[in-house]
Write a protein that binds this DNA or RNA. Structure first.
Length: 109
DNA sequence: AACATGACAAGTT
DNA sequence: AAACTTGCCATGT
């Protein structure tokens, strides 16, 4: 394991996502100051399969679409989100704006 | 060792 | 306004 700082930071933020809330890769990336590296955030999630403590299902793209659902191992992403009270249709979060958890808005002082 | 791809997003044209 | 191009870090071939 390389344990790059980015991955570590990403994991930390993702783990801080409250239940019933979701966030986007870009939001995390931006919070970490790597706005353009949103891809790496997603890549980190993929690697997070090793870390089942990471609620990767709470992380979606900026459209609120579960882009990496097919990559998700184990239970269905949609089901997990629905269990948390998130309404979604066809892999897309309906009230994305309402459940969107922005780390910059919540963690930023 | 080098090239290509990947859970995205923002900037330009 | 819609579509195209660029940026970013890590991993796989």
């Amino acid at each position: 394991m390389k344990k790059s700082n980015f991955f570590e930071d990403v994991y930390d933020v993702v783990r801080l996502i409250p239940k019933g809330r979701v966030t986007s890769y870009g939001a995390i990336a931006r919070y970490l100051g790597i706005t353009k590296s949103a891809r790496v955030v997603g890549w980190a999630m993929k690697s997070s399969h090793n870390d089942k403590s990471i609620p990767a299902h709470r992380v979606v793209n900026r459209n609120g679409i579960l882009t990496g659902k097919h990559n998700f191992i184990g239970k269905k992403m949609d089901k997990l989100l629905k269990e948390e009270g998130i309404q979604m249709k066809n892999n897309q979060i309906i009230n994305f704006n309402e459940v969107f958890w922005n780390p910059i808005n919540e963690l930023e002082l």
